[in-house]
């Protein structure tokens, strides 16, 4: 059975049939690994993040990397055209990807991207929102919940101030933005289920 990796971080969703799963995985890791490193570098620049224990930093990054990348790559999902652009630059229609067996997760990604893009966040707002997403005190396995909570609260306050400053007339914008967080959790869970079905040896 052909392996389909309909992740925009992959070069293309379907490789040549003669490629082994190991080769497909090695190719994917060429784009996946640098993307994860960028998320780690981003985290290091969040004021206060490096002061957390190393284990809590790792726990937050393990749990939140997918969500950070989802926010970062939301623009790759063109809702109007119903297409996904992969990092290779190639664009695939949602219909074609569904034809390869990808369904529910992609539909939910499109819904999320549409809602996020409709908020028209500035780069600064998007960066701060991403920091709030990453520093979530309710991730499983956090050792010092209090420290993570304090950091997340300060980031949320900064985000609220920033969003209110850029759109003082739209008081619901901040609430709408925070409501994207449970959507990201849902996507994260769906993505984890997909990963479990694709065992990497």
């Amino acid at each position: 059975k052909d392996i389909v990796l309909a992740c925009p971080m992959n070069m293309c969703p379907q490789d040549k049939p003669n490629k082994t799963p190991q080769e497909i995985w090695e190719d994917f890791s060429l784009s996946f690994t640098p993307a994860v490193r960028e998320v780690v570098e981003f985290a290091k620049h969040i004021p206060g993040f490096s002061a957390l224990s190393e284990n809590d930093q790792v726990t937050l990054l393990k749990a939140g990397t997918f969500e950070v990348l989802t926010v970062r790559f939301a623009s790759l999902f063109n809702v109007k055209e119903q297409t996904v652009t992969f990092i290779s630059g190639a664009t695939y229609s949602l219909e074609a990807l569904k034809g390869m067996g990808m369904g529910g997760l992609l539909d939910t990604m499109f819904e999320f991207s549409e809602k996020l893009n409709s908020l028209e966040l500035t780069a600064e707002e998007l960066g701060l929102f991403t920091a709030v997403v990453l520093v979530s005190a309710d991730r499983s396995g956090i050792e010092n919940i209090n420290s993570v909570e304090l950091l997340q609260e300060s980031l949320i306050r900064a985000l609220r101030a920033l969003v209110s400053k850029s759109n003082p007339c739209d008081v619901s914008r901040f609430t709408k933005l925070l409501l994207k967080m449970p959507d990201l959790r849902t996507l994260n869970n769906m993505h984890s289920e997909k990963l479990l079905s694709f065992r990497i040896d």
């Binding site: 994860v36 490193r37 393990k62 990397t65 993505h191």
Partner: peptide, 27 residues
Amino acid sequence: FSDPASNLGLEDIIRKALMGNLEERPE
């Protein structure tokens, strides 16, 4: 694997990046 993140080798990449392991970085 019961943990999808382990399946991806995510923790290993994260720990190396956190430690600033320059040898692991692409040029």
